[in-house]
Design a protein around this nucleic acid. Structure first.
Length: 435
RNA sequence: GGAGCUAUGGCACAAUCUGGUACUGCAACGGACUCGAAAUCCGUCGAGCCGCUUUUGGCGGUGUGCGGGUUCAAAUCCCGCUAGCUCCUCCA
């Protein structure tokens, strides 16, 4: 949610910044007109209420003195019905204002490149382990490189067919060493984040509507959510929702900030509108595992913490020796709640592209305002915290990247060094006759 | 799933039957006493939200779990809901 006072006072600037986020200027004009009408109504109804309070006190006093108050009561009957009518009008205006305000995306930070879509994103840095000679393209020059889903199926560790049979398209079973590898990957990630000072959590994976509103998924993006039939609850699209809403409605002790959480959770997405895209493999599923990071910070420290969180995501890829680059998203490519977002993209040699494996965002006070998370500053005044979230990392996509980058010509896959302790010292994935 | 009870400031509670300025204590804050502290005494104390404003502040509105209703007036009466507790039932 944006700060209404800012929008009123700086409407021209706000209009431009909203236009950068794809919102038409008329939308803000409409909002401000309704806001003005709302405030006019409030003033009228509050005057009447002040009058009612005053006269009611007099009536109470008169009754205590056993005096007659029927004149005053008759007079207040009219005021009472006027108040009722104006209250109703205000409630209607409140709803109209909220309807627009709740759909406005966050404003981008000043250093975010302005552009309509991903074409305006800006690469920040590139990394690859030494044996790639800083040229991840090197691997693709061999003609035997296979896609991760072909590798996984050949090894018998990814079963998409039975996933589709039992659940539908975009679901799968991990089998045997595949399941073990997935578990090794997320245990490794959680251990790393724990070392970095994140508190490990296991969260509910079903949340109520106010939680989905708090982080910004609702009301605008309900189509992509798995709602529990008949209940006002939703299967989470990311652990960001339960982690960030953990403190909703609370005032945090300033000395505890920044607070850092991490959690593994399944994530559920309908992927509405992406029919036909990435139909094979681990890239775009209705259910996938993700290790998430969330931070609550003071405003002045949130951008340093954004850099730190991005480094936490990169650290995982560096320890896994997977090539990646980091891009700064443009105003047109950022998510609804974000003020600034870095995407980390891992090298996928078979497709010859970088694929998103993490997205790290500072939402500033956008989510905190929606869910009322505050702290007391040096002057003992309540301030909204800043919230950040980032994947650290998408587990399934990490497994896909490992399969492709660590594949050998004989069809086996070498297990990255750092994962071997998590797999009982196993060094390779090889085809087995059966599991 | 069934039955009963409960929900009031940061905490503990009163007022609910019988509608009329939400009691008191603790904590907190300011002050007195003291070399300093404790104790004691005096004073302040409804968080948050909304609106207006001449903005270190002032005024008004709202605010007794949430949402409605009745009434000149609701903590109090009525309806719906949520959460917690106890018992029954079920369950990994």
């Amino acid at each position: 949610m944006l700060d209404m006072r800012y929008l009123r006072k700086n409407s021209e600037e706000a209009k431009q910044r909203l236009r950068d986020r794809g919102v038409e200027a008329e939308t803000l004009d409409q909002l401000l007109t309704l806001d003005q009408a709302r405030r006019d109504t409030i003033q009228r109804v509050e005057n009447l209420k002040a009058q009612r309070n005053e006269v009611s006190d007099k009536i109470a006093y008169a009754k205590r003195q056993k005096e007659d108050a029927s004149d005053a009561i008759a007079q207040m009957q009219q005021v009472g019905s006027d108040i009722k009518a104006l209250d109703a009008k205000q409630a209607e205006l409140d709803e109209q204002v909220n309807e627009i305000a709740a759909h406005l995306p966050n404003l981008a930070a000043s250093e975010v490149p302005v552009g309509p879509d991903e074409s305006a994103n800006v690469e920040q840095r590139k990394w690859a382990p030494a044996h790639y000679d800083n040229r991840p393209e090197a691997l693709v020059k061999t003609d035997w490189v296979k896609a991760h889903y072909d590798i996984g199926e050949a090894l018998g560790i990814l079963d998409f067919e039975r996933g589709a049979k039992v659940s539908g398209a975009r679901f799968l079973y991990y089998v045997g060493d595949g399941a073990r590898l997935e578990r090794a990957v997320y245990n490794f990630m959680l251990d790393e984040h724990r070392k970095e000072g994140y508190t490990e959590m296991i969260t509910p994976i079903v949340v109520n509507d106010s939680a989905m509103f708090g982080t910004g998924q609702y009301p605008k993006f309900q189509d992509d959510a798995y709602r529990v039939a008949g209940l006002d609850q939703t299967y989470i699209p990311t652990a960001e929702v339960p982690l960030t809403n953990y403190y909703s409605g609370e005032t945090l002790p300033a000395e505890d900030l920044p607070i850092k959480f991490t959690a593994l959770s399944p994530s559920f997405r309908k992927e509405a509108g992406s029919a036909g895209k990435d139909t094979r493999g681990l890239i775009r599923l209705h259910q996938f595992n993700k290790v998430e990071m969330v931070k609550f910070t003071k405003p002045e420290q949130s951008y340093d913490e954004l850099e730190a969180m991005t480094a936490n995501a990169e650290n995982i890829l560096q320890k896994l020796a997977l090539p990646y680059h980091v891009i700064l998203l443009s105003t047109g490519d950022m998510g609804f709640s974000a003020a600034k977002t870095y995407d980390v993209e891992v090298w996928m040699p078979q497709q010859n592209v970088y694929r998103e494996i993490s997205s790290v965002s500072n939402t500033e006070d956008f989510q905190a305002r929606r869910m009322h998370i505050t702290y007391r500053d040096e002057n003992n005044k309540l301030q909204l915290v800043h919230t950040l979230n980032g994947s650290g990392l998408a587990v399934g996509r990490t497994v896909a990247a490992i399969l492709e980058n660590y594949q050998n010509q004989d069809g086996s896959v070498t297990i990255p060094d750092v994962l071997r302790p998590y797999m009982g010292g196993q060094e390779k994935l090889e085809a087995k006759s059966h599991y």
